[in-house]
Design a protein around this nucleic acid. Structure first.
Lengths: 149, 149
DNA sequence: AACTAAGTTTATTATATTAGTCAACATTGG
DNA sequence: CCAATGTTGACTAATATAATAAACTTAGTT
């Protein structure tokens, strides 16, 4: 019952883009460095996000990545779907045909409820939420060690 | 993000015991047959449940298995914990030391909420709930095809 | 005591998934 | 053109999962 690193890294990469968006494009290289993820691996992770149109990539010098929608309009459920595929404790929950017992199996029902609980968490969180949390955290820790600006 | 078959088979095995408990002990062989699970594999799955004392096994002729508590007192969260270990989308949620970013990582918070949602589902379901659901289902399907008793 | 129906334990194997690396390639700004 | 940057596909290593097999132990039954 683990999320793959694809999903975890990918989510962090998107959050990183959201936070560093400005005039310039955000470069993979920099994301990799800031997030401490292998550049090569990150390339593979970003690919499906670009493919799905959640991220736009610009090649060549001064190229880089940018989000195509506002962070508040990107739900984690969508991100996870793209990187992890449909999340489910068991296949039969999304594909009853995959098990003969589906019709009468009650454990299947519980796993279905589990999936719903998960989906609900992801559906109600956007990249914007994450950005705000991060800002909040930075401020909180900054107040302890530094003088206020 | 899948549950292992251990957990799924194990849950079904417990449900099977709960439903077939009576004067006689429930035999592994019969569970394996009814649930369509390899006997050998089932042995491995039952072991930790016996070890944890949720199930008592009696050896020898006429031996078999029985629950040590009433089904209403066995939560799925406990069963899953024994078979799957602690369920978590990412290790850092239960062990902050496992990642340097734990202190300031906001994706970690979301995965934590996901875990909570999962735990909550499992905490609120008992074997007894499953037994009742199963009985309900059988009755419902019986009404269509058979005359009532 | 011998027999036998269980459950127990340990090894082994096959397969799938995941994580990660490497290298060649394509595009574009300057 | 050429240097910076993203794209793609092939490949590998490590790990986890699922399942099977076989030898072993225990405890009723006769």
């Amino acid at each position: 019952m683990k999320l793959s690193t694809r999903t975890r890294y990918g989510t962090r990469a998107l959050l990183d883009i959201a936070r560093h968006q400005g005039d310039k494009l955000v470069q993979l290289k920099d994301i990799a460095h800031r997030q401490n993820i292998s550049l090569h691996y990150l390339e593979h992770i970003i690919a499906p996000l670009v493919g799905a149109g959640i991220v736009r990539s610009t090649r060549g010098a001064r190229g880089g990545l940018q989000l195509t929608r506002r962070p508040g309009e990107i739900k984690l459920s969508e991100v996870v779907q793209l990187l992890e595929g449909t999340i489910t404790p068991v296949d039969c929950v999304i594909d009853p045909e995959s098990c003969k017992r589906s019709d009468f199996c009650v454990t299947r029902e519980v796993w279905g409820e589990m999936k719903k609980a998960i989906d609900n968490t992801l559906k109600t969180t956007t990249l914007q939420n994450l950005v705000e949390r991060e800002k909040g955290k930075e401020q909180a820790s900054g107040m302890k060690s530094r003088r206020s600006r």
